[in-house]
């Protein structure tokens, strides 16, 4: 087969940059309040909320853009947004 020369991009985390630096407000998760419903995990536009083996969640601040959808959608208000210092 003839070899085709074209530009192929490879999948990497942070394909643009470490998008965490875009943030002005950061989400703070109260693990005691969290019911592990996973709504924040599925509704994060950037996949910046990690889902652990035991279905608890963790916010990846390296890539979180600080949109606040997780805080707005959390049914038990376990996430709140605080201004970055």
């Amino acid at each position: 087969m003839r070899e085709i020369f074209t530009t192929i991009s490879r999948p990497v985390k942070g394909a643009t940059e470490k998008t965490g630096q875009w943030r002005t407000f950061k989400p703070l998760l109260d693990k005691k309040k969290c019911t592990r419903c996973l709504r924040c995990w599925i509704l994060c536009p950037d996949g910046a909320i990690q889902r652990n083996e035991d279905e608890s969640v963790e916010i990846n601040l390296e890539y979180c853009k600080g949109c606040g959808i997780c805080a707005n959608e959390c049914p038990v208000k376990a996430i709140r947004m605080v201004r970055e210092e």
């Binding site: 394909a15 943030r23 599925i42 996949g47 990846n60 600080g66």
Partner: peptide, 23 residues
Amino acid sequence: KEELYLPGSAACAGCGDGIALRI
């Protein structure tokens, strides 16, 4: 659990398309 749309993309913060893509 597999993420085929990786974090750190060029999407605006709060992008609806990002959520659609992930699901």
